[in-house]
């Protein structure tokens, strides 16, 4: 049995059918890149995995446990617990502007461990938990190269730095699978490198990741598996060498040709 199994996901918005039966699975420690033209449903798929959208049909199974099945109804609380298995890094960062970098990373863990705590915590316990969370946040921020920006506000950072904070913020919740939705699309070209470097480092520490990206070179070199999506279905799936070196589907071939043209101008 695979680590993550996504089975037969359908999703429509009104009349438009966006996902038309998505099936794939991935192993622990794997990096999966999802490529495809605009509007093919990549973002919608990630949003389904993170429970920001609820699929009309299909199921999601993680480590043998069925996290989601479209036939079932889930309470807000259940959804909240389930989505914590996944992290999501947005294209537009979505940092909290009123908080410092450090607070951006600490806020959600504090709310989860202190405010949502089942038992009543003593003051000393709260202080202890806060300390642990902050210590952990400092470590994560150091690992993405932001130790010197802890007390800065997001508006004082470059796009690349903001995106690295967003990655740290997601990591602080210890997700089992970290998802990225075009993490470098909103960045100036000279800033994409620092973000991709962080993602590569996460890969080398065996983190399981799903990355929607337009960076073909990055997908080819960093991913273990690649999915090419077109019109709401998985058109092609395989290792980077298979998908990029020896594509079988017409749509994949023409998409890859187009993105090559874009790169070479």
């Amino acid at each position: 049995m695979a680590f993550l199994e996504v089975k037969n996901i359908f999703k429509r918005f009104g009349k438009t059918e966006v996902l038309k039966g998505i099936d794939f699975s991935m192993e622990k420690g794997e990096v999966l890149a999802i490529i495809g033209s605009s509007g093919s449903g990549k973002t919608t798929l990630l949003r389904c995995l993170n429970f920001l959208e609820s699929p009309d049909l299909g199921s999601i199974v993680l480590e043998g446990e069925e996290l989601f099945n479209a036939e079932q109804k889930y309470s807000d609380r259940e959804i909240r617990e389930k989505r914590l298995h996944f992290g999501l890094v947005f294209q537009s960062f979505n940092l909290f502007p009123q908080y410092t970098v450090l607070k951006n990373v600490c806020l959600a863990p504090e709310l989860m461990r202190i405010d949502q705590s089942e038992k009543k915590l003593s003051r000393a316990e709260k202080i202890q938990i806060r300390k642990e969370i902050e210590e952990n946040a400092r470590q994560i921020l150091a690992s993405v190269g932001l130790s010197d920006k802890l007390m800065n506000y997001p508006c004082e950072l470059s796009g690349g730095q903001q995106q690295r904070v967003a990655i740290a913020r997601a990591l602080a919740m210890k997700p089992v699978i970290l998802c990225f939705d075009e993490p470098t699309s909103a960045l100036d070209p000279e800033l994409t490198g620092e973000v991709l470097k962080v993602i590569r480092e996460l890969k080398s520490s065996d983190r399981t990741m799903i990355i929607v990206t337009h960076e073909m070179g990055f997908a080819r070199s960093a991913a273990d598996k690649v999915i090419f999506m077109a019109d709401g279905v998985i058109e092609e799936y395989g290792t980077p060498d298979e998908v990029f070196g020896n594509p079988k589907s017409e749509k994949t071939i023409s998409f890859l040709e187009k993105s090559l043209e874009n790169i070479t101008g």
Partner: peptide
């Protein structure tokens, strides 16, 4: 995006509003 960032980080609706 502010609401969604809070949601994927496991915050409740009330926490998202107040925090």
């Amino acid at each position: 995006g502010q609401y969604e960032a809070g949601q994927v980080l496991g915050m409740t609706k009330t926490q998202i509003f107040f925090k």
